[in-house]
């Protein structure tokens, strides 16, 4: 069996069913030591792949959630100011001065490591997940490029900190902003689609092993056809799993058994008022009937 297939089956053991595209992209990015950039709609399992990879490689997952205005102090490092001030006062009372104090308060003891610095200072290579990179500003993206190519971070007071281990980097993007070509070029790329019917069935079977086979087929068929409706927020894989959990929790074996339960469990799939209005019970029943 070739390497990338064994990687795929390793992921499958952890409950993640990856498409050939994704498994190959992941394999190549691990082999070449390049970051993996994943794009796709929300809820297709982009974030989950990093978590699963960390489990499969038996290493730590370090996550950096991006947001608008994310800055170096939150992504890389920050000095512990309160402790620094206290230390200055204490050493002033001991009669120490100038360079000694400075050396002390700008030592690693007073450095708060944030995800990026943490990731390059581990003993074993961790998985670094940079989530929703498109939400961060472009300046941050440029800085990230620098870190990702050199794997070293410069703290003016301390000097350059080089990586003790190279993290496996996974970046995800929801496409709210166009990423720069420079970042794209530096990454291995894969676009994650909503899973097809067979894959989604496999995912459901992996995550809820005790679900009834017929119900599983119904659930997947129902969600797949729901995705083709005009919706503001298309249900992802996570929603599908919630839906399945809700149905098994309510103890039904057939989607068409009880319209009330179907209606109630739709809350796990339809997340906006407009979508709820767009899919009234009749439509849901029609879709469920087709899926059966």
């Amino acid at each position: 069996m070739s390497d990338w297939k064994s990687l795929a089956s390793q992921l499958a053991e952890q409950g993640y069913i990856a498409s050939p595209d994704l498994a190959m992209a992941l394999h190549i990015s691990l082999k070449l030591g390049r970051p993996l950039l994943l794009e796709g709609a929300a809820g297709v399992g982009k974030t989950e792949i990093a978590r699963t990879l960390a489990n499969a490689l038996d290493t730590r997952l370090i996550r950096l959630q991006c947001y608008e205005g994310l800055d170096a102090a939150h992504a890389i490092y920050e000095w512990n100011y309160q402790r620094q001030l206290l230390a200055i006062r204490a050493s002033a009372e001991d009669g120490k001065t100038g360079p000694d104090v400075e050396k002390r308060i700008f030592s690693e003891e007073f450095l708060l490591e944030r995800p990026l610095l943490q990731a390059i200072r581990q003993d074993t290579s961790p998985v670094l997940l940079i989530d929703e990179i498109d939400r961060a500003d472009q300046e941050f993206e440029a800085y990230l490029l620098e870190v990702l190519s050199d794997f070293q971070i410069t703290v003016p007071e301390l000097g350059t900190l080089t990586a003790t281990s190279r993290p496996y980097v996974v970046l995800t993007s929801n496409g709210t902003r166009d990423l720069s070509d420079a970042l794209r070029r530096r990454c291995i790329y894969s676009y994650v689609e909503y899973p097809d019917r067979a894959t989604e069935l496999a995912i459901l079977a992996a995550r809820c092993p005790d679900i009834d086979e017929r119900l599983a087929a119904q659930i997947v068929g129902f969600v797949q056809s729901l995705r083709r409706e005009e919706l503001e927020k298309v249900p992802g894989v996570a929603e599908m799993l919630d839906f399945a959990a809700a149905l098994t929790g309510l103890g039904i074996n057939d989607l068409n058994d009880d319209p009330e339960i179907l209606r109630a469990s739709l809350v796990t799939l339809l997340k906006t008022q407009a979508d709820r209005a767009n899919v009234p019970l009749e439509v849901a029943q029609r879709l469920a009937g087709k899926a059966a």
Binding site: P20, D21, M24, A25, I28, G175, C187, Y189, S190
Partner: peptide, 15 residues
């Protein structure tokens, strides 16, 4: 699959 992962950089190229 391998060349696709390396050479494509956005959704359109990927498709």
């Amino acid at each position: 699959l391998a060349l696709k992962a390396v050479c494509s950089g956005n959704h359109e190229d990927f498709d």
